[in-house]
């Protein structure tokens, strides 16, 4: 899909997307060994060594509802985790993002892929998602135009231990990092 390259938002801008989806089993043209491959979680877990032995970087694609804990022992070899949002109303992978960041300590790219509204971007960032490959045109326009709606006062500590909770405020409430 040629236009995919134009749609990846990361680090404050649209970036080229070098990642290629791993082909279905039995596909005629397997990916070149050096390609950065995005492998469905189920496929990866069934035979991790095959993918870990490749030359190109490894990404894992997580469908909504899949358990990211199974990736725990491989995280240092995974450069990208793409969380799927089949519909903006499906919130399962918000939890998956927090588990990856806060429990499993994953520090690679976590990318939201699919149906995301502009009003959800700020929520996703707070859960640890840092890249967006979204289908919704107005959301891409909002990212481009820097018009991401956000309430910048938070009542929940969610971003992991590195952000200190200011003394004297409610511990479950804190200002965003400056």
């Amino acid at each position: 899909m040629a236009n995919e390259t134009a749609r990846l938002w990361k680090d404050g801008g649209f970036r080229p997307n070098p990642w290629q989806d791993w082909p279905e089993d039995g596909a005629l043209e397997p990916l070149d060994p050096g390609t950065d491959a995005l492998v469905p979680l189920e496929r990866f877990v069934a035979d991790p060594d095959v993918f870990l032995a490749r030359k190109g970087r490894l990404g894992v694609r997580v469908a909504a509802g899949e358990d990211v804990a199974v990736l725990a022992e491989h995280l240092e070899n995974i450069a990208l985790i793409a969380l799927e949002f089949p519909s903006f109303a499906d919130g399962r992978n918000y939890s998956a993002a927090r588990l990856l960041r806060e429990r499993l300590g994953y520090d690679g790219e976590i990318r939201a892929v699919g149906d995301v509204l502009s009003d959800q971007i700020a929520l996703m960032r707070r859960c640890g998602i840092d890249a967006f490959l979204v289908t919704h045109g107005p959301t891409r326009a909002a990212l481009q135009g820097g018009r991401i709606p956000e309430v910048r006062h938070y009542y929940q500590p969610v971003s992991g231990p590195e952000i200190e909770i200011p003394a004297g405020s409610r511990p479950w409430a804190r200002q965003p990092a400056a």
Binding site: F88, A89, D90, G91, Y94, S95, R98, Q120, A122, L123, M124, R126, C127, V151, Y154, Y155, Q156, V158
Partner: peptide, 9 residues
């Protein structure tokens, strides 16, 4: 629970 980012959907 107010605008809890994980639990709005």
């Amino acid at each position: 629970s107010s605008l809890h980012p994980e639990f709005l959907f």
